[in-house]
Design a protein around this nucleic acid. Structure first.
Lengths: 134, 134
DNA sequence: CAGAATCCGCTGGGATACTG
DNA sequence: CAGTATCCCAGCGGATTCTG
């Protein structure tokens, strides 16, 4: 059989710590502020329309929302469906691949909420250590 | 007892989906490419010196490394210790707060490595759908 | 060794106006 | 409604030089 063939199964050799590695770029994209929030919203609310997302992601510009959605669609994390009608109706939702990101991203989002008080305290301490006395 | 007092315990009212909420900014910082990699390295390798980090984070500039470390220190995620010597020796490490970020960040990093093939395939499909034929 | 300081190109990202 | 196109500026971030 070919079972002793040196198949590189468990060592993908992808390493985000290496410059130019595509996994680093991917990590950068999924760690992006708007990506996290868009994926979070689609995960919580289910499939949504463009305007719904824009309203729920307080402060996002149309440009950034479009840009983010396009990137997520290209990466296979989000699907996009156009319903031909008089005012066109476009819906976005998580793909099965995108679903696998819900848990890790939710963990990160919740961390930022839960530990914000500690961070704020730390910032205060840092700023009053030896800051603006010169 | 005072157990029925309306203490706002479980509702911090911090919401990263709201514009201007500090939790959004925090989420943005911890989701930053270099922050993720710096915290990941300090978590894996333990306390490290500036040059060690620069070498292990392939491609990072001194400016970005300094900037990232300063922000992490200010947020209370990383400590910084100066050992006075002839060539000065500075060490960085994770605080207990920073440690709490290891698991979620590790999950995210591993996701980007494990699912990169699927993402690459999705990108191919997207680009060959109706791309550059015009 | 561990930065601080400077220069500077590039693009991220907001605001606005236009289209199908 | 769901974008696209354009303008434009701040600041990200790289390269280089200087310092204690």
């Amino acid at each position: 059989m070919a079972t002793d063939k040196a198949v590189t199964r468990t060592t993908p050799s992808w390493d985000p710590y290496e410059r130019g590695c595509p996994s680093r770029d991917l990590l950068d994209r999924i760690g992006d502020k708007w990506s996290i929030l868009v994926l979070g919203e689609l995960g919580k609310q289910g499939p949504s329309r463009f305007t719904q997302l824009r309203n729920r992601l307080s402060g996002v510009s149309e440009k950034m929302l479009t840009q983010t959605l396009r990137a997520l669609e290209r990466d296979g994390l989000v699907w996009r469906t156009v319903h031909p009608a008089v005012p066109v109706r476009v819906e976005y939702g998580l793909t099965s691949l995108g679903e696998t990101l819900r848990v890790p991203l939710k963990a990160l989002t919740e961390w930022s909420v839960q530990h914000l008080p500690e961070v704020l305290t730390a910032q205060d301490a840092y700023d009053n250590r030896d800051g603006q006395t010169g």
